[in-house]
């Protein structure tokens, strides 16, 4: 499903000193996996996820989504992949502040080319399924943190992606909410969705089917989770 081949990413630092966020990362993710990318802060988790999400071009190496090399296609094609096959959930939700919960979710569907009515229907259905049926017309600022995260999850799922990339989606949540989000993710994985999730929380990391540990931009460990079914 996802094939990362010797990907490195360096950022220009101050004084001309390059900062390496990823160094020769190799990673293969199979369809239906729930891969937890873990590691200390600054280890490159988010950079890896952005690279997988067709949002951050690596300095070297290649990222394949199926047969498609993400950074060899045009920016327009990459945008299309982000709309249709990839989805991203951020730690800080990144909902558009001036749109309602419903409009935030429907917007992603509209950008993918769905008709307005169909987008709204789809968004309404998803939000209802995730328990936000009563919050459709609330703006993000009027939602609780957990509700915002669920709304962000709805937005990422509205176009039926093949891969969900989640950058510490539980980072802002308390334990009950974290468990709720993890249950949702486990359900989605059971439905065939491939999920790559970054977390620095080991308790959460153990809920995946596989754990990839990054350290100083390199894959330090890659092992199956000891409790793959714990989320269920």
């Amino acid at each position: 499903m996802i094939d990362v081949r010797r990907v490195s990413k360096r950022f220009a630092g101050r004084g001309g000193r390059a900062v390496a966020a990823l160094v020769d990362v190799d990673l293969r993710v199979q369809a239906g996996e729930l891969v937890m990318v873990t590691g200390p802060s600054g280890s490159g988790k988010s950079t890896l996820l952005f690279t997988l999400g067709a949002m951050l071009k690596p300095t070297s190496g290649e990222v394949f989504l199926g047969d498609t090399s993400l950074y060899r296609v045009s920016p327009g094609r990459r945008a299309e992949l982000r709309r249709t096959r990839l989805a991203f959930v951020f730690q800080t939700f990144n909902l558009i502040p001036y749109l309602t919960c419903l409009a935030n979710v429907a917007l992603a569907a509209s950008l993918a080319g769905r008709a307005r009515a169909a987008s709204l229907d789809r968004a309404r259905t998803l939000l209802g399924r995730l328990g936000l049926g009563a919050r459709l017309h609330h703006r993000p600022a009027e939602l609780s943190v957990g509700e915002r995260q669920r709304a962000a999850l709805c937005r990422s799922l509205v176009n039926d992606p093949e891969v969900l990339l989640a950058d510490e989606p539980t980072g802002n949540l308390d334990e009950p909410m974290t468990d709720e989000v993890m249950r949702l993710l486990a359900d989605l994985r059971d439905g065939g969705l491939t999920i790559v999730m970054a977390t620095h929380n080991l308790r959460v990391a153990r809920l995946g089917t596989r754990v990839v540990a990054l350290r100083e931009g390199r894959v330090a460990d890659d092992w199956p989770s000891v409790l793959p079914q714990a989320a269920a």
Binding site: A21, V23, S46, E216
Partner: peptide, 8 residues
């Protein structure tokens, strides 16, 4: 995300 992994 660009913390100096290799320099820290």
């Amino acid at each position: 995300t660009a913390s100096p992994a290799t320099t820290t």
